[in-house]
């Protein structure tokens, strides 16, 4: 068996209602893996950019790119190699936890406290995906109530 590798793929598509289902349906129908998927319009155009983190062997990854290309509303498929990759995460902590500790933790990962309410503290971090994983592990000692990950976005260097 060929080894599985992780890959980040950006897909530039026509901004139309069914395009996301075409892309996600392609992955589901052909049994390809999706780790994360994010989508947002590209400013000043009628296009959107979908960023997908997937994994598979070389043959599968090549098929994913080629099959995406075949979709009519797809303009461009970029398999990232030299890229800046970021993911965002929001974490909600109980108010009983130490605000200063949480703030220090978030800052260590290029983030900070974004909201403090009566019952909770919300921290936000945007960093590379494996650093996000470490951050989430580190939050466990502050009894997080809810963790929301944003999925990966990437830009070629």
């Amino acid at each position: 068996m060929m080894a599985e590798t992780r890959r980040v793929i950006s897909v530039v598509v026509e901004n139309e209602s069914s395009v996301l289902s075409r892309v996600s349906g392609l992955f589901a129908g052909r049994g390809y893996n999706i780790d994360t998927l994010t989508v947002a319009p590209l400013p000043g155009t009628n296009r959107s950019r979908i960023t997908i983190v997937t994994k598979g062997n070389e043959r599968i990854l090549e098929q994913i790119t080629k099959q995406l290309h075949k979709l009519i509303p797809v303009y461009k498929v970029v398999e990232h190699e030299e890229m800046i990759e970021k993911e965002m995460v929001l974490v909600k902590f109980p108010i009983e936890e130490s605000l200063a500790d949480i703030q220090a933790l978030c800052e260590a990962y290029n983030g900070g406290i974004v909201n403090v309410g009566v019952h909770m503290i919300i921290g936000m971090v945007a960093d590379e995906p494996n650093r996000i994983r470490h951050f989430i592990e580190a939050t466990s000692r502050y009894n997080p109530i809810e963790i929301v990950r944003g999925g990966v976005v990437a830009i070629e260097r």
Partner: peptide, 8 residues
């Protein structure tokens, strides 16, 4: 004519 057929 379909690149996806090649190497599939």
């Amino acid at each position: 004519i379909d690149a996806a057929n090649i190497g599939k």
